[in-house]
């Protein structure tokens, strides 16, 4: 199939960007979206141009690198799929495709479609961990975890930190990411000791990083390639409010 691409090109984070139009000819429908961009880049390089920069690593939907907004939807039209696992059979011959980077103040564009997601790392550093003595692995089943809790923790832990939730949120809020990273610890016994303080520290850092705030649109849940539920946000809110009421330091 032959496609017309409108791609956001931006030299550096301080440069002003614009859309450039490219023809993508001879695209096979079994190509992934990134394969298609590789094909376009090969032609750009052959013609002596600067290839389109985009982030990618595993190309199997588990690393969270390859975020881009495709025709107005984070990761494109296929539900619960990252851009690298989106296949060209989701498009048809003659389609026009708009490709943009994640748009958020907290995610500055480094080049073209690549954004800096270090703000996510700082949210994790604020409390998304458990302070324990490390050593040899503990015995499996030494601490019993009820099956429903283990499942909920695991569903939250499926977050790959791609940033699609921020990209899709009309408020550019990272509450779904923050909530998932708090919840995968708060559902298991090991995460209880620091639970309330963790929630407070992570939300405060989330706010300081310049993310917006949740107004319960649910757009994040719709685009999340791992299908993480907005219900985790309500758990995070509960823990933060509880931290305040019980006098645990929140600032």
């Amino acid at each position: 199939m032959d496609l017309t691409l409108h791609v956001w090109r931006q030299e550096t984070s301080s440069a002003s960007g614009s859309f450039q139009t490219y023809k993508a000819a001879g695209v096979s429908d079994s190509m992934s979206f990134l394969d298609m961009l590789d094909l376009v880049n090969e032609r750009i390089t052959r013609d002596g141009g600067d290839p389109i920069a985009f982030e990618h690593d595993c190309r199997e939907g588990i690393c969270g690198s390859c975020g881009m907004v495709i025709n107005g939807i984070a990761h494109g039209p296929h539900k619960m799929t990252t851009a690298c696992q989106l296949h060209m059979r989701s498009f048809s011959d003659g389609d026009e495709i708009w490709i943009e980077p994640w748009r958020a103040k907290a995610f500055p564009v480094l080049k073209d479609l690549v954004v800096e997601r270090a703000a996510f790392d700082r949210i994790i550093q604020a409390g998304g961990y458990i302070s324990v003595r490390t050593g040899s692995a503990p015995d499996a089943n030494a601490i019993a975890v009820p099956k429903p809790d283990a499942d909920l923790a695991f569903d939250a832990a499926a977050c790959i930190g791609c940033g699609a939730c921020v990209a899709a949120c009309p408020n550019a809020s990272a509450m779904l990411f923050t909530a998932a990273k708090a919840a995968h610890l708060s559902y298991v016994p090991q995460g209880q000791t620091e639970r309330l303080g963790r929630a407070a520290a992570m939300v405060m850092t989330h706010d300081e990083e310049g993310f917006g705030n949740c107004t319960n649109h649910g757009a994040c849940q719709e685009v999340c390639p791992k299908g993480i539920s907005v219900n985790y946000i309500s758990r995070l809110n509960r823990d933060l409010l509880k931290a305040t009421l019980t006098g645990i330091s929140v600032g």
Partner: peptide, 14 residues
């Protein structure tokens, strides 16, 4: 705060 958080707007938004 949310308005500032978006920064540049999307060209196309679904």
């Amino acid at each position: 705060k949310s308005r500032a958080a978006r920064g540049a707007a999307y060209r196309k938004e679904d």
